[in-house]
Nucleic acid binder design. Structure first.
Lengths: 206, 206, 206, 206
DNA sequence: AATGAATGAGCATTCATTCAT
DNA sequence: TATGAATGAATGCTCATTCAT
């Protein structure tokens, strides 16, 4: 019933709803699991009608995709920006690791979706890993590592792709364990511990 | 009436069917995903009637559990045996890594179930990780590492639990990537590459 | 937004479907029996989709309950109204008996549900008799009888509760026999024959 | 292994098992309801294997039939014997009523099967009432009543068939209420109370 | 854009019955 | 006779999606 609100909200109104659904879905998926979550639950949590969900997303599956895409896009974007200012490949990798765990540690629901719900089907996994943001993320780590190899910082004989997967796997396991643990501890500090070992392992002899 | 007949047939008759269902389920779950797999599919693949499945398993979910349990039990059992003969903690860890990837690399369907289907719900994940075989596996890695720490081989300041998770995560990622990759390559050799970096990273200075 | 439209349409639209399902279920239950009736049969007979049934009823069992409740509520309501105008307890009981058989005689399907389908489980029976409409119905007969006792019309030494059950049982058996009989005869006239004997049996000597 | 036991048991052994199943089924049906009772439950309660049940009965339904038939046959047989010694039709009917409630009151499980489980389907009801023991039972009451009419004891203008149904209905309701009641009271004494009213209602003026 | 009533395909599980031993 | 493992037909209910309003 307000009157003057329109100017700045016409478009945002649309996004508001889309984002509300995305936020609601993240929460619902995290709490109940993707397969046990009903579209109606998401709609209720987002404060919209069931049918409205389908004005913004083609299907329940697309919602899951969108959660992943939106989070990854932002993470990669923010990550690239942060890395620009850094030169040392070692420092860059340290920063990546910290950002990785910071983001997941900051939003437990999102973390659950990333670490658990997204993993439950080869279909999802293939779509997400073969191409797209995940490959881009892994590529970023790899490129940074190769940069270090060229600079003589990292051992040249190592397979950069494998190294990237290894680092990712280590961080990924930290996140997954954190989510599943009953004990509540800080996730971020583990980044440095992991990087200590990792960098020690891949660095060239002086 | 005979004597020599019982040993090799009486029990196996029962197990044959149970194992056939387990084998069939592994295949079906790997191909279609747990949630998309119908019990009827499993029964057909195992060559039994739908109802027969329920003579051996309480529910579809129990089948998944049993696949995990059976594979883990055997893996841990075989693993412990192999490790007995080895003294050097480094060598022990190398052997663990190789066994890890060998087992998964030898049965792609089982690997898919382990790397993907088992991961898709916090419920499963919690059941499998909090206690049970997974914790035991992680504990085995950790104990070996601590052995090395006590022997002065590995850096004493490192958190053994984190180290264990890190190694597991690295190997786990190798396996997952291998499954999802379109390219068919050998999984086992990656164990040595990972261990090279890992051991380099955790070893104490000489 | 006219005014006069709402009264006769807005609510009925909802009720139409609910009542169609109830009517269809009565028919289906009467023809096939409760346990042999499929929800799909009811849906088809009501001209709705299977799922629609569950928008109006929580379960198949609730449909049966609702048939009973709706019919009993209306019967008791109509009954009380008719009885208000009558003073003589004998006449009241005669009217009750006639109404009882009139209602059942007017809708054979409903009668089958009442006389047969509702009787097949202690669970149902207990729910329906212990409290609720049935107890209320029996109480109505009993109260009327006690009224006659106080008025000196009925024998004071008789146990009113037992008398009420006896009359109900007699009428109930007329209805059940009528339903099961291959011969088609009028049910209502039996009310007077029963009441002749009954009143003769319970009336005080003049 | 025994040797000398055979003479008197060869046949009884057969009947023992058949009767054990019948007894077990009565109990199981009474506790769980016919439709919720599994043949396996009956077998276990009878101490035989599932398949054995089918050596004595063609189907689950036949078991229910047999319970009814066996109990009715014995009741009618015993009833006829008792009535032989009585002359007065009033006394005969009193005896019938008492026997009716005595039998049901003596075996609650059997009573539940008779009053509830047997009533839940038109199919059962039709089979049991149209012909068979139930018709015979009703016919026995009716014949006794007609005997009294001829003797001038009972009112000649009454419809004997209706009178028989009425008496049966009254007794039947006593039994059903007794079963469903939480309060535990004696069923048999109600026979005399019912008969008091009934006989008063149908007797010819002196 | 938004609603929410309606749809109907889809599926784990049960259990009466059979039959090889 | 007796067993009990195996069978497979049968069904209530859910929920993603649609569409008339």
């Amino acid at each position: 019933m307000g009157t003057a609100r329109s100017l700045s909200t016409v478009r945002p109104v649309v996004n508001d709803k889309r984002e509300a659904i995305l936020r609601a879905a993240t929460q619902v998926f995290a709490r109940n699991g993707y397969f046990n979550s009903k579209v109606a639950d998401i709609a209720r949590a987002a404060g919209v009608a069931d049918g409205t969900v389908y004005l913004y997303f083609k299907s329940k599956e697309e919602i899951l995709h969108s959660i992943f895409d939106a989070a990854m896009e932002e993470a990669i974007h923010a990550g690239r920006k942060e890395l620009e200012a850094i030169d040392d490949p070692r420092e860059k990798l340290r920063r990546i690791a910290r950002l990785h765990l910071e983001r997941l540690g900051a939003d437990r629901d999102l973390a659950v979706v990333f670490q658990v719900e997204l993993r439950g089907s080869t279909k999802f996994m293939e779509e997400f890993s073969a191409a797209g943001f995940f490959a881009e993320y892994l590529g970023m780590i790899r490129a940074t590592f190769e940069e270090g190899q060229r600079a003589g910082i990292f051992r040249r004989e190592l397979n950069a792709k494998l190294v990237a997967k290894m680092l990712f796997g280590a961080l990924d396991e930290m996140a997954t364990n954190w989510i599943l643990s009953r004990r509540r501890y800080k996730l971020v500090p583990m980044a440095d511990e992991v990087m200590d070992i990792f960098l020690n392992g891949v660095s060239a002899a002086i």
